[in-house]
Design a protein around this nucleic acid. Structure first.
Lengths: 248, 248
DNA sequence: GACACGCTTTGACCTACATCAAACTGAAAG
DNA sequence: CTTTCAGTTTGATGTAGGTCAAAGCGTGTC
């Protein structure tokens, strides 16, 4: 096995077309050996909670397969998703003892974990890892800020379109397919989870998904399987700038 | 001068009570010398735009005095603030050529800048800096996620109370005062800027500020000067958990 | 086959906040 | 002292999305 999960975290290889996933010629570097020694796997079933906010968290991890969410809950039960973790995403914060969010598996989930202590020691020694982690965290921060624009200023319809576009893009990217023609993917979230992502109610999500379907922006096969016949059309519905955020 | 601005970025000294601000015994470390050589200052007047989204950005910087905001704007003019930069906060992303957000001075502003190229070279050499930057970015990510909960799920009144609490805390912290008794501070934002922060309109902000004043949660002296007679009371109005997010 | 259970859709109604509009306030400019 | 202007407040009205309620749908179970 080529341990792509380990590469996600430890290594940034310019030669790899898809940085977080590909196998890389420099796999023998020291930090990878170290990571290899301290890693272990955990599996969770769909719906299982990985960690509760406030729990002691003695590991960091990266998602290998499946989807997990980070959510915050208010005392009265209002919930807001604050992170959507797809394969190759990183969970956990070096330097923090206690989880700040609920982490939940929304599909069956496999994570590649590293015990926090040795991971931090390794980080202190190998600048590679800290730099890669910084880069990944900055990407997450950008995503969070786009998400803030969505939550604060977009209409319900724009929110739905944006979420579909995000998932479609991630999905297509992970499958290495180009974005020409039909884009097909399975929604990994229930209406309620979509609502928690978007700051809406599930009823509003349902209505707006139906509306996009009625207007021919998407085609629904069953409840979960989605076909996007014209990706540009979907992007128009998001309210985002047309130049599509190609910042480097 | 003890160059506290430089310390913000380059150094994490456990001995300093207030980490980002204090002067530190290890100031002679190499990276500080390097930073010292490549730094320069820029001043902006209140209202001036520091960088437009999409502009080439050849420096990174930290705020020395004053307040700046990061905002995103949609084609039709809807605006959402996505970052509020107070003294000691960091702007700019190593590795990115182009600004992703509008950066605006909301008060007179002094920034301590570092040209990007030498800063990045220095980062590659001194792990200290990358690690400090990672830590700061993770803090920002947490702040962004709390902000997402605010935007997605809080009522207008809770949003206002939360913003006041955030500013009060930052302000008190920067002044090294304890949080007992009256907390007094000047609002650094106009109603419109508050609205852009909170995903509201300025009219709603005005109404809710008046309501909090009517209910005795805050005392307004003029339009900007605010007295919080009972900080716990204000916190109750935020809708947040009472244990106040003391995550380490 | 019928039942139960989780998820989704649809409808009727309601309300928090947006929108539009006008008046107020205070500081700066002449 | 008057004018101007940016920022703010306040009021009247509109509406997107929330709330409550009921019905539909697919899958697994007895």
């Amino acid at each position: 096995m080529n341990t792509p999960d380990v590469l996600n975290v430890g290594h940034d290889c310019g030669a790899c077309p898809i940085r977080h996933r590909a196998v890389c010629a420099r796999c023998e570097a020291d930090e990878l050996q170290t990571l290899e020694q301290i890693k272990y796997y955990r599996s969770y079933q769909a719906g299982q909670t990985v960690i509760w906010s406030g729990d002691r968290m003695d590991f960091v991890a990266s998602v290998v397969t499946g989807i997990a969410t980070l959510t915050q809950t208010m005392e009265d039960g209002r919930r807001q998703m604050v992170g959507l973790l797809l394969p190759s995403d990183f969970v956990g914060r070096p330097g923090r003892q206690v989880a700040a969010y609920d982490v939940t598996a929304t599909t069956d989930l496999v994570m590649c974990c590293f015990r926090k202590k040795p991971f931090e020691e390794m980080m202190a020694k190998t600048p590679h890892v800290a730099q890669r982690l910084l880069e990944m965290t900055l990407d997450e921060l950008d995503a969070a800020r786009e998400w803030m624009l969505l939550l604060g200023r977009k209409t319900a319809r724009e929110k739905i379109a944006s979420l579909l576009a995000i998932i479609a893009r991630r999905d297509a990217h992970l499958k290495l397919k180009s974005a020409k023609g039909n884009i097909v993917f399975d929604l990994p979230l229930t209406r309620e989870e979509m609502a928690d992502y978007l700051g809406l109610t599930l009823e509003t999500v349902s209505r707006q998904v139906s509306a996009l379907k009625r207007d021919g922006v998407i085609v629904l096969e069953g409840k979960r399987h989605i076909v996007v016949p014209d990706f540009d059309r979907l992007l128009e519905e998001t309210g985002d700038d047309s130049d599509g955020g190609l910042l480097v």
